[in-house]
Simulated assay, not measured.
Amino acid sequence: MKRKHKILISIFTVFMLCVLTISAQTSPIYNLSFEKKGINLAAPLNWEAVGNAHDISLDSANSIDEKYSLSVKSKSGKANTNDAFLLTNRIRAKPFIGSNFKLSGNIRTLNCREGYAQLYVIVQKNGLTIQSVYSWEQRITGTTDWTKNEISIKIDSLADDIVLGMMFRGSRQAWFDDLKIYRNDVLVDEEKIYPAKLNAAEQDWLNLHIIPLPTMVSSKPEEQPDWNEYFGDAKIIGLGEFSHTTSEVFTAKAGIIKSLISKNQLKIIAWESGFAEAEIFNKCLQTKGCDVKSSFKKMITGPWNNAEVLDLLQWIQNYNATAEKPVQFVGFDMQKYKTAFDRLMHFAAAKNNKLLINRLEKYQY
């Protein structure tokens, strides 16, 4: 009988909870004033940084609210508006549906040339954007003292998530501080907006749907349980995590992936990485002797550019060297458009498609 292979989608927003930690006694934390530090101590708790051209830190020397502000500083002194830094915090939309939602905050900039700093809010349903608002008219440029930004939006009845965002483009440095959210112009107290405990119906639903997983601290395939007991005959498996920066999570996920590959049950890994970059990187995984580490640093970015993921991908390269049917690595995101743009331009030139070449040149980066 022909063996059915699984496709693993490794996404780094929570698609399927491999590890689920629930506390019925504590409320969610917005951390709008950045006073609570995250795991890596540089980023504030519950905020996710996107972008590689800037360094972030909690700054106690330039704060207007409590102890810290959030500092964003470009790694290069050169101005490049294509290098955007985003810091986002996702909150539940349910308490705000149908109301006027306002995000306010203070921004300070230093020599922000050919760029700007601003706030934004994105409203989503099932991960798809259904509303958005940016403080375009209030964008901060140049060198400024603390300046207030405010944006408002009426939350759609279909919404399930609200993404709070801060954006910085260009060179030098920007600071963000004293963020606040309002519902119908009333300041929201994050300690009161959510109930302190789950109600009986919510607890029953969780008890019905949660499947406890075994304790996993090893990435070795031979030390893994029989994952078919959990995944059954599923053709697509989604792996997510509750934290982007926890070694144990990446180690556990690597163990699951290696185990499925070792049993010849997994042949395609779809990663939240650039489509064009992943295509190039996949060729390295299929080539014996290719420097996976060097290619990995160039092609795989974000929170999954770490030692645990590198070890997994080097293991896959070794597996592919003798496998009858090698494991394929594909990307399903667009994180850097330069690689994709270059590939498209190369295709147009190879086909001598002058119309396409002319169109592409108009959008040259």
Rank of each mutant, 00 (worst) to 15 (best):
residue 4 K to F: 04
residue 7 I to Y: 08
residue 8 L to K: 09
residue 8 L to D: 03
residue 10 S to K: 13
residue 11 I to Y: 15
residue 13 T to Y: 15
residue 15 F to K: 10
residue 28 P to W: 05
residue 30 Y to G: 03
residue 34 F to H: 05
residue 36 K to D: 14
residue 37 K to H: 13
residue 43 A to C: 05
residue 43 A to V: 06
residue 43 A to P: 00
residue 49 A to N: 10
residue 58 L to C: 04
residue 64 I to F: 02
residue 66 E to L: 15
residue 68 Y to L: 05
residue 77 G to L: 12
residue 79 A to F: 03
residue 79 A to Y: 01
residue 83 D to A: 09
residue 85 F to Y: 14
residue 86 L to H: 15
residue 98 G to V: 00
residue 99 S to P: 01
residue 100 N to A: 11
residue 102 K to Y: 04
residue 102 K to V: 09
residue 102 K to L: 05
residue 104 S to I: 05
residue 104 S to A: 13
residue 120 Y to W: 01
residue 122 I to C: 06
residue 126 N to K: 13
residue 129 T to D: 13
residue 131 Q to R: 04
residue 132 S to I: 02
residue 137 E to V: 00
residue 143 T to F: 08
residue 143 T to W: 09
residue 143 T to C: 02
residue 144 T to E: 12
residue 151 I to L: 13
residue 152 S to C: 04
residue 156 D to K: 03
residue 164 L to P: 01
residue 164 L to M: 04
residue 166 M to F: 10
residue 168 F to T: 07
residue 171 S to M: 06
residue 171 S to P: 01
residue 182 Y to G: 03
residue 182 Y to E: 11
residue 191 E to P: 00
residue 192 K to M: 11
residue 193 I to D: 11
residue 193 I to G: 02
residue 195 P to Y: 04
residue 197 K to W: 06
residue 199 N to W: 04
residue 200 A to M: 08
residue 204 D to C: 04
residue 206 L to P: 07
residue 207 N to I: 02
residue 207 N to L: 10
residue 210 I to G: 02
residue 214 P to N: 09
residue 215 T to S: 15
residue 222 E to A: 08
residue 222 E to G: 01
residue 227 W to D: 01
residue 228 N to W: 04
residue 229 E to Q: 14
residue 232 G to E: 08
residue 233 D to V: 01
residue 233 D to K: 15
residue 242 F to S: 13
residue 246 T to H: 07
residue 248 E to K: 13
residue 249 V to A: 10
residue 252 A to Y: 00
residue 257 I to S: 12
residue 262 S to D: 15
residue 265 Q to D: 14
residue 267 K to Q: 13
residue 270 A to G: 08
residue 270 A to I: 12
residue 276 A to D: 03
residue 276 A to K: 01
residue 279 E to M: 01
residue 281 F to T: 00
residue 282 N to R: 02
residue 284 C to W: 05
residue 286 Q to K: 11
residue 288 K to L: 08
residue 289 G to Q: 06
residue 290 C to Y: 03
residue 295 S to N: 11
residue 296 F to N: 08
residue 299 M to G: 00
residue 306 N to K: 10
residue 306 N to G: 06
residue 311 D to Q: 09
residue 311 D to R: 10
residue 313 L to G: 06
residue 314 Q to H: 06
residue 315 W to G: 05
residue 316 I to G: 07
residue 318 N to K: 15
residue 319 Y to D: 02
residue 320 N to T: 02
residue 320 N to K: 12
residue 320 N to M: 12
residue 321 A to D: 10
residue 329 F to M: 00
residue 332 F to R: 12
residue 335 Q to R: 01
residue 343 R to T: 01
residue 344 L to V: 01
residue 346 H to E: 14
residue 348 A to K: 04
residue 349 A to L: 14
residue 350 A to M: 04
residue 352 N to W: 00
residue 353 N to D: 15
residue 357 I to F: 05
residue 359 R to T: 02
residue 360 L to Y: 07
residue 361 E to I: 06
residue 362 K to Y: 08
residue 362 K to D: 09
residue 362 K to W: 09
residue 364 Q to E: 14
residue 365 Y to E: 14
